[in-house]
Design a protein around this nucleic acid. Structure first.
Lengths: 353, 353
DNA sequence: TACGTTGTCGATAACGTTGTCAATCGTCGG
DNA sequence: CCGACGATTGACAACGTTATCGACAACGTA
């Protein structure tokens, strides 16, 4: 009991393996064995050690452990997203965390804001802490700097878009397929004048999506009417303007596909303004909270973010287990969820609805 | 040039301070000095060292550094939220990250899902990695286990709700004030039959919010009519049912306050179903994407999450700089944003609008 | 009984870094 | 020219852990 007092009263420094060994009356290596679940420790001694661990509230110092281990593992991984505050990134992070925690790993997270320098800074900080692997939503036009990390056998997996000037495992959504399907969906409801509002083409996913639009329009309709296409939309405000503009064309488009979340918001806003919410069909890429409470409810193409995160983490831990040379690219399907706004028929649609 | 080849070709292990020292032709301690910006290094030597660092792409090993330093600092902090995938948590995390990164710190994040054991597990893992401090959105009824960490001088700050059975710095929203103001707002538009839908009372914020409702109703109206109050609503489905139920009372309430996000969603859904969206006023706690696109647009009470995060990080880093004994509690104001749904007048309001 | 085999255990070195400290260098006043 | 004093430098120990390795015990076999 007196020892309890001493340990409880000890004021500052965390107990070490040495303290545990002393209290249990064994050598430090034996304590290490117990902590790491190594075999060949007599049960009786093991029990004594575990009791000491409990009593001192001992926790292994991962830092010290990792510098000494042969594999240098820290049991933590780094995740770089564009902006953790957005729903895609936060759900991705959540999934990755759960996956990692199940394997006793922790996740360091950082937001690059799409700025290449910030991405590099984050990666550098992660590597200073010797993360075991990196999950990156890449920004900028050059990820070749990651080669250095990979040479130190830190595996890298890209998420949402491929890295540039470097080959690595990658997990993507089937962006083009999604928009293709949206076009298809709209044509089935009689539309042919289908407009498209998209982000800057330099954004990989935006390029993929509009490519899907173009391909589908070529295939299913007469082709792309450039009057109905607007790109370079960075936010909902510019999307609002672009939507007003596109809907003012003559003849006006009868349907609208929006390349992302904020564009959808801006476009819906514009349709309200023009009073055409119930006449013009809309399909948005990415789901929105409350999308089903709008009138009409919003038809959307949703990404399977949970699967993306899980597959990416999968690839990372697989590489952690046994490093290989080949690079895999995984495409995760997207889903069109009809809720009303995408099923509005053409005004001149004789089939009705 | 030959050295370049050797270093570039070197296959696996990260370069150490020793490698840098060898390449620059100096002692390791001098390299350490340069890395840590310590004074008393001749500029010429410093330049040579920095060049070697550059050439080898050297990065200090934070783990090794932290076990040796006197303060044991790892320049990383731990953040436990309930669910990183929800907007509150993800914005909080984002803000905290930025704040930390500006000070060269990284953030380990974990989601407790409101499960006390998971919270403890996360904290334990964080502490194994010797984080310098902890930011916690506490779950469960007992955070006294954190005393042990604090004795090792790991500062703790609670966010969104206070920890139980332990005193520590805390940053909260003025939940009660927010709901109070909502009631006030509704009464100004002629309402007196104001219903309230809330989460389980065991949730701290939910209790605070309904307390604000009760206080305001006592003060401004005749008092609380229990037929108009429903609590224990865990999700939008149960909120949907509760809203249908409350709106079926006779006389029916003319206004509705929803205690959180998902309750608002459920309630709005129910109002659609009953066709009373334009007749019954609604105010929701917490903002929603697209809230301004609903018809009528949703009046909400929003928390200033960015400020909460910044203040919490502030407190943490302040404690890190110089540990003190006093515990502070910071209350961050909330704001009512009128958008339409909260300004619907009472049917029998003679003032009109 | 002698011997080999397997299981158990701890002393010690080592990981990459920083703290300590003594040695050396340079400068300045006398 | 000498001595003093501060700036500069690096050898070495130490941090908390794991890897290596030799010592010893327990057991079975010849």
């Amino acid at each position: 009991m007196t020892t309890e007092d001493r340990s409880a009263g000890g004021q500052s420094r965390a107990p070490t393996i040495k303290d545990v060994a002393a209290l249990a009356g064994v050598g430090v290596k034996t304590v290490s064995r117990v902590i790491n679940n190594e075999p060949n420790v007599r049960p009786e001694k093991q029990a004594r050690i575990l009791e000491a661990v409990e009593r001192l509230n001992y926790r292994r110092n991962t830092s010290a452990s990792s510098i000494r281990r042969l594999d240098q593992r820290t049991a933590s991984i780094g995740l770089v997203v564009e902006d953790l505050a957005n729903p895609f990134a936060s759900l991705l992070a959540r999934v990755v965390q759960d996956y990692a925690l199940e394997r006793q790993h922790l996740v360091l997270v950082g937001s690059s804001d799409g700025v290449a320098d910030r991405e590099r800074e984050l990666v550098a900080e992660f590597c200073a802490r010797r993360v075991d692997g990196l999950l990156i939503v890449p920004s900028g036009t050059d990820q070749s700097y990651l080669e250095a990390e990979r040479r130190r056998s830190v595996p890298v997996v890209f998420v949402d878009r491929p890295g540039r000037r470097i080959k690595a495992d990658t997990v993507l959504s089937e962006n083009d397929r999604g928009v293709r399907e949206a076009v298809h969906h709209l044509t089935r409801h009689g539309h042919s004048r289908i407009a498209y509002l998209g982000d800057r083409q330099s954004v990989y996913t935006a390029a993929q999506r509009i490519a899907g639009y173009r391909a589908a329009m070529e295939e299913l309709v007469a082709g792309v009417d450039t009057r109905y296409v607007r790109t370079g939309l960075r936010d909902s405000t510019s999307a609002y303007q672009a939507a007003l503009d596109v809907l003012a064309q003559a003849p006006a488009p009868t349907a609208l596909i929006c390349g992302n979340n904020s564009i959808t918001a801006g476009a819906v806003h514009a349709m309200h303004k023009l009073g055409v919410r119930n006449r013009v069909a809309v399909i948005g890429f990415d789901d929105l909270e409350l999308a089903d409470l709008l009138q009409p409810a919003l038809t959307v193409i949703v990404q399977d973010i949970a699967t993306i995160g899980r597959r990416a983490a999968d690839l990372l831990f697989e590489q952690l287990k046994d490093p290989t040379d080949g690079y895999r690219r995984i495409a995760v399907p997207v889903t069109l969820i009809p809720r009303g706004s995408g099923e509005i028929p053409t005004p001149d649609d004789k089939t009705g609805r």
